[in-house]
């Protein structure tokens, strides 16, 4: 472990260069104005931006998202009126209905993208914030933070709230030809959940979160 540390010092990479993750080009890092993103000059992949990552701001949005998460997933999102009979469904109900029909793969896909991944994403960011605020000096805190940050990009990719929102509209239009469709309170909660996660991810900067582990 000691020998590792000495080699680390010998092989220190200069602070002012950055590599493009898509094409490996060496780019010299420059100071950017607020809200501007640096692109790779060769392949136009996003390289870095100025982190606008306020820990307390994120904490507030995170709590709001967590508060909205349960009504958004448990309250009915859509109502169908057809010759006097009324059917309602929740986000979770959609997945279980497909499962009952014998399509576990589809059910898992829907469940992960619309329910599990967004939930874990909110919980993960909340824990990261709390760890950075209160447990960054402890060994277990740093280890847990590292673990959460490693999984972060996977969770972001798996969570598909925006697509689910559009699919409400598409199914409402499709079904409106046969029956009367009403949106319920769940739709409102789900839209608000989507917006809060959108703002949360806009504020969140993975690179900046990693940098908390560098400071000793």
């Amino acid at each position: 472990m000691d020998s590792h540390n000495t080699t680390a010092k010998d092989t220190q990479v200069p602070e002012d260069i950055v590599l493009c993750r898509a094409c490996d080009l060496v780019v010299s890092k420059q100071q950017l104005p607020q809200g501007v993103r640096a692109l790779c000059p060769r392949c136009h992949t996003a390289l870095y931006d100025t982190p606008y990552c306020s820990i307390n701001g994120m904490l507030a949005i995170c709590l709001a998202a967590l508060f909205l998460y349960f009504p958004a997933n448990l309250l009915p999102v859509m109502e169908l009126h057809f010759f006097g009979s009324v059917r309602t469904t929740t986000v979770m109900g959609g997945a279980t209905a497909v499962l009952e029909q014998g399509y576990p793969v589809v059910a898992i896909a829907v469940m992960v993208a619309a329910v599990i991944a967004p939930g874990l994403l909110i919980l993960s960011i909340l824990s990261q914030i709390l760890l950075i605020k209160y447990a960054i000096d402890s060994k277990w805190g740093r280890r847990l933070l590292k673990l959460l940050l490693t999984q972060q990009s996977l969770l972001t990719q798996l969570s598909m709230l925006e697509i689910y929102l559009i699919s409400f509209l598409v199914s409402a239009f499709q079904l409106s030809d046969h029956a009367d469709i009403y949106f319920s309170i769940g739709t409102f909660c789900f839209t608000m959940l989507f917006l809060s996660v959108l703002f949360l991810l806009r504020e969140y900067d993975l690179q900046h979160m990693w940098s908390f582990l560098d400071e000793k």
Binding site: V77, M78, L80, R87, T88, T89, G93, G94, A95, T96, A97, V98, Q101, V106, A107, A109, V110, A113, A114, I163, Y164, S167, F168, V170, S171, Q174, L175, H178, A179
Partner: peptide
């Protein structure tokens, strides 16, 4: 897939 899951849950 989302549209199918919503439709299947509602139309039964």
């Amino acid at each position: 897939l989302f549209v199918i899951s919503i439709t299947v849950a509602l139309v039964n």
